[in-house]
Design a protein around this nucleic acid. Sequence first.
DNA 1: ACCAGATATATGCAATTGCATCAATATTGA
DNA 2: TCAATATTGATGCAATTGCATATATCTGGT
Lengths: 142, 142
Amino acid sequence: MSIDLETTKAWQSLHITSRTLIEQVEAAFKKADLPSLSWYDALWEIEKAGDGGIRPNALIPQLLLPQYQTSRLLDRLVNARLIDRVVCDEDRRGCRAVITQKGKEMRARMWTIYAQCLDDLVQKKLGKDERATLARLLNKLR
Amino acid sequence: MSIDLETTKAWQSLHITSRTLIEQVEAAFKKADLPSLSWYDALWEIEKAGDGGIRPNALIPQLLLPQYQTSRLLDRLVNARLIDRVVCDEDRRGCRAVITQKGKEMRARMWTIYAQCLDDLVQKKLGKDERATLARLLNKLR
DNA sequence: ACCAGATATATGCAATTGCATCAATATTGA
DNA sequence: TCAATATTGATGCAATTGCATATATCTGGT
């Protein structure tokens, strides 16, 4: 087993690109006085879940976060009045995360920035076919 | 400006793939009772610099870390006796990070695990041409 | 030589993470 | 039914990060 140059290059560009692009999005959020990407991701999943909200444990695989991080991210969102932790009737160990009106507004505000970034950082830089090829190759790695 | 599906898919798979693969490498290091990827990266850059060592500020662009993180990573490496912080004659504000024998051994030990991961996670999953294409597309994004 | 920046690095402090574990409730199987 | 086990979610504590700033040294212009 020996690692060739293509492997090294692919590995490096994968992580460098991911980090660099995320940093740019985070910087854009910060510049607009908005919270970070992880808040966006959580708000979006919670908003998509609708009025019934979503259980924290269902959020974990979506956000790819460990349980304790998810719990604490929810703490912060509650604290910022962007979501409510509602009691869960069918399982009283748990709760449901439900987005508030303020949360919806925040997510929408963040999306305008995020979408602009996605356009600048990805959509303008690769053709449609290239974007599809990239996604296909990446998906072979997971 | 509107974001299409290929863009979203490419964006998601980029970050999910990067995170997932890194987690797998970190897990392999942890399982082998070895420190984390950031230690490896730093040790490798410092080892490549040879006996003269490398200035922390030259390490920053290599590691893509902020200055204070670099400084503290060096603290930990010194603490673990994997590098020395040597006084720098030509600029006494600074120092030079020089790898120790123990550091070299650690890096080599980590590489056996790391290389195995790269083989399993990348080299076996994509053909040579696919790896090259992936790197090329990713590099268009930075 | 001297002073006004600029640069290299370190560090105090608050926020966040990771880990282990806890408390509460649910489920299973005898 | 009930004890054993599993699952959900939160939390104390130590380690790490992020930010702002401090300290020491260097450099360029006068």
